[in-house]
Amino acid sequence: MRSRRMLFRLLRAGAVIYAALAVWAEVAHWRSSKRMLGTKSGTGGSQAVVVLGFRNRGSTANFINRYRVRAGIRSLPRTEDGVLVLSGGSVAGDVAEAVLMETYAREVLGYTGRILLDADSRSTWQNIANCVPLIEHADTIKIVSNSPHAEVAREYLWAQRPDLAGRLVRGDEHRFGEIVPIKIAATLRALLFRWRADVAAHPA
C-alpha cells in the first residue's frame, strides 16, 4: 500500500512538472515566433520560406525534419509566387538534410511547388549566408524551424543582410499543442545556447 502511494505521488509530481514545462515552452515558442521580424505585412508579393534542417543520421528525413517541412509548406501562400528553400548539409549522415527534406516533401507529401536547396550548410550562420542568394528576390521572407532556433536565424539575417531582414514575417511553425516534448527540449537547448553566448561575450 505504501509503495503504491509513493508511486502515485511520484506520478502526480511528474505530471505537474511536465505540465509546467509544457506551458513554459509554449509561451517561450510563442514569444520567439514574434521576435526579430521586419516591417512587412506578410501579404502580397513573392514569398520565400526557408526551412532549417536538423541533424539527420538516417537515409530518410527524421521526425523533426518532417515536421519542419510540413510547417514550411503550410507557411507558403497558395500562389505561384512562393518558393520553399530547404537548408542543411550532411552534418550527421551521408546525405544532406536538404536532400532528405526535399525527398519527403515530394515523395511523401506530394508537394509540387518550387523548391530550392542549400545542401552545404553545417551551422545556422551558414544556413543564412548560403540561403541569401536564394531569397534575395522575395518580397517577404519566412524562416521555419522550432521558434527559438528560427529567432536565432532571423537574428543572423539581421546581422548579415539587414536589407533582407526588413522583409521578415512570421512563419507558421508554432501552433499551440503541437510537438510539446520537442518544444520543451528546444527551449532548454535555446537557454543553454544563450547562456554559452553570454559567457563567451563576457568571460569572468
Rank of each mutant, 00 (worst) to 15 (best):
A71S: 07
N62C: 06
L116N: 12
G82A: 06
M101V: 08
A129I: 12
W24L: 15
S41F: 06
G42S: 09
E26V: 09
V83S: 01
C131Y: 02
L21C: 04
R31E: 15
A92W: 03
L134M: 06
I115M: 02
N65P: 00
Y104R: 03
R74N: 10
S59N: 13
G82Y: 02
W125R: 15
N62H: 06
Y67I: 08
I115G: 10
V51W: 00
G45M: 06
G93E: 04
G113P: 01
A19L: 11
L86S: 12
A20F: 14
R70C: 06
R57N: 14
V50M: 08
H29A: 07
V83K: 02
G82V: 02
L84E: 05
F63Q: 11
T140L: 09
G88H: 08
G88V: 01
G88W: 01
G72I: 04
A96E: 07
A98H: 07
V51R: 00
V27C: 09
R55Q: 13
R106N: 09
G44K: 05
V27Y: 14
W125E: 13
D118N: 01
D120C: 15
R106M: 01
V132I: 08
V27P: 06
F54P: 10
A71T: 09
V132E: 08
A138V: 02
L100G: 02
V91Y: 08
L116V: 14
A13I: 13
A22S: 01
I17Y: 11
T103Y: 14
G14C: 09
A13P: 11
G42Q: 04
T39V: 15
T79H: 07
S90K: 10
T124M: 07
